[in-house]
């Protein structure tokens, strides 16, 4: 008799605790998720850029989602230099053909993959970019060649809407 009573009480305890835990989680989640990017931030997910004024050998920097994006119209020399690099020489092996579908245009986030600084144009040991914060060197394809950064600069999703306009995002 007394054993049976204890079991019913145990069930109540377990059930109450379980429902209480689910309830607490249901309240905590909105409090945590409110800190994630909101609808207005997400709404800025794409940007269209007019690149008609860009001449070969120059870079345009535009802001996309609060981050700089480098749009580089590469010279033939730069393309050749990027394409002749052997994969085994790379820290993060990626083919230039995959990074720049249209070889003349290199579009990538101008954010160093080490701790998020903006690398400088036409600098460094590989004629590409150089990050002044902690000394990472990138080549003409934006690939990491030397320094503490672990990855190549990221290529975002983008497309040519027409001959003169790039849509990023």
């Amino acid at each position: 008799m007394s054993e049976k009573k204890t079991k019913r009480r145990d069930f109540l305890f377990t059930a109450t605790t379980a429902v209480g835990a689910v309830g607490a989680a249901a309240v905590v989640w909105p409090m945590i998720d409110q800190m994630n990017p909101d609808a207005s931030v997400k709404a800025l997910a794409s940007t269209e850029v007019d690149v008609s004024s860009l001449t070969p050998g120059n870079t345009l920097t535009v802001l996309w989602r609060g981050k700089p994006v480098f749009i580089r119209r590469r010279t033939q020399e730069e393309i050749d230099e990027a394409r002749k690099v052997k994969m085994e020489d790379l820290i993060h092996p990626e083919k230039d053909e995959d990074r720049a579908k249209n070889p003349e245009w290199l579009v990538m986030l101008g954010v160093c993959t080490h701790l998020g600084c903006v690398p400088l144009n036409d600098k460094g040991d590989y004629n590409g970019w150089f990050c002044p914060c902690h000394g990472s060197h990138y080549d003409t394809s934006g690939r990491i060649r030397k320094g503490p950064a672990p990855w190549n600069m990221e290529v975002p999703k983008y497309e040519f809407v027409n001959a003169n306009t790039i849509k990023i995002g």
């Binding site: 945590i32 800190m35 994630n36 990017p37 909101d38 931030v41 989602r65 609060g66 981050k67």
Partner: peptide, 17 residues
């Protein structure tokens, strides 16, 4: 990092929090 920022970079949501 995205959660801390409240966006895709340090910006206004980061400042207010």
């Amino acid at each position: 990092v995205t959660w801390l920022w409240g966006g895709y970079s340090v910006d206004n949501p980061t400042l207010t929090r």
